[in-house]
Amino acid sequence: MSHLGERVSALVDGELNHHERDRALSHLAFCASCRAEVDAVRALKNRLRSLDGPAMPADLTMSLLRMGDPGDPLPPRERPFPSSRTFGGAPIPSMHSVAPPDNRPRGRAAGPRRTRRVGYVAVGVASAAVAIGTLFVVGGPEPGPRVPPVDMFANQHSNTAPYGGSARPSFSPTP
């Protein structure tokens, strides 16, 4: 695909149909010069808009055009964890809805042991979890400070077919 050229303006204005937009976006993923041009046009249009009337809402086109290279630093989300009891618009179900068993050492000084609740209700979904406290350690006997192997997890995540019968990935779990 050749450079975006005059399609840059139409892209910024959200005037491309979805097929053209996809093609333009896939070009932008690899073309720094067109990205720079899109940024410049967007900045210019924003400035023009700010001259007359209230600012445009951050619509889909704008968020779409925030696209950069994967991994580019991006502005932080405004309200990722509101402190109220709602979270991303959804009410927070009670905590500890999933929980591993208490695997802290027992029988010595008995730190405060939480009572496990039986049952748990998510938004509109009746669900249940059973509470039986006992010892169990998933990751081996020496739980120490650690960083999750996120790449391996990502591999498992993206290669899992939900309800595919067996969720075990068919690939070899490297990187």
């Binding site: 809805s97 999933v98 591993p100 979904v125 669900s127 249940a128 979890a129 406290g133 169990f136």
Partner: peptide, 15 residues
Amino acid sequence: LLSMGWRLPTALPGR
């Protein structure tokens, strides 16, 4: 896992 004391929610918000 349940018999070992794990509690696994069978659903999370968002269906």
